[in-house]
């Protein structure tokens, strides 16, 4: 057994808090943006306009078959070419995760939309709603509710995946733990701390999702 000194956890807390705040901000922005973009992508994939459906499909399949680390590196490399100015690792991470998660949320929303009985659309049209109105007021709310547990589970995965911004050096929870570990020469204790924080958050969230799943199941 090596010698451990867990007193380093005390002075590390301000840094850990800042890192955790960035991780949470990145997760929330990517989740919101990802669900909005993902829903649009899902509508495009289900659209009768063939080129639109094909393009959305190609985007989603491409994103889903590339390792996330490579996607992060790609965006970090390409964004400065597109904008003409270098962007920070944090901004790059936010753009990357929104674009990447959109592909996964798209597939969830697509199966959500497809899970709504067709009769709902017919009933909406019979009541005089336009196609767009039927989608916005009838289909999407039901799709969203049916898929709520899956959307949240994907958000937990997203929360864990944000640790990969390590590849471009953005200052998230893991990076903060890494930096403190190096400064105090206590890397082992800091890795353990970050693992505990990730576990505590993810485990309680997944318990909450399980409860939610039961409630949604009863309503149906």
């Amino acid at each position: 057994m090596g010698e451990f000194d867990f007193t380093v956890w005390g002075p590390s807390l301000p840094f850990i808090r800042d890192g955790l705040l960035f991780t949470l901000r990145l997760t929330l922005i990517a989740m919101t943006g990802g669900i909005v973009l993902g829903t649009l992508l899902a509508l495009a994939r289900l659209s009768p306009i063939a080129p639109l459906s094909w393009l959305a499909g190609a985007y989603v399949d491409t994103m889903r078959s590339i390792p996330l680390v490579m996607v992060i590196l790609w965006f970090f490399l390409v964004i400065p070419f597109l904008t003409g100015t270098p962007v920070g690792a944090e901004t790059s991470a936010i753009i990357t995760f929104t674009a990447f998660e959109a592909a996964y949320f798209c597939e969830i929303m697509r199966s959500g939309i497809q899970s709504v009985p067709r009769g709902q659309v017919w009933a909406a049209q019979a009541l005089g709603l336009t196609q767009a109105q039927a989608m916005i007021h009838v289909v999407l709310p039901q799709a969203l509710r049916n898929m709520l547990p899956v959307l949240l589970t994907q958000t937990i995965v997203l929360f864990q995946d944000t640790s990969l911004v390590y590849a471009i050096g953005a200052k998230d929870l893991l990076k903060a733990a890494d930096v403190v570990g190096k400064n105090y020469n206590r890397p082992v204790e800091m890795i353990v701390l970050s693992a505990l924080i990730y576990f505590a958050i993810c485990f309680s969230l997944s318990l909450a999702v399980r409860q939610l799943q039961k409630r949604v199941a009863i309503v149906r």
């Binding site: 864990q160 640790s163 990730y198 576990f199 993810c202």
Partner: peptide, 9 residues
Amino acid sequence: LFRNVPLLV
């Protein structure tokens, strides 16, 4: 245990 900690960690 293995599902709730990021793979990188």
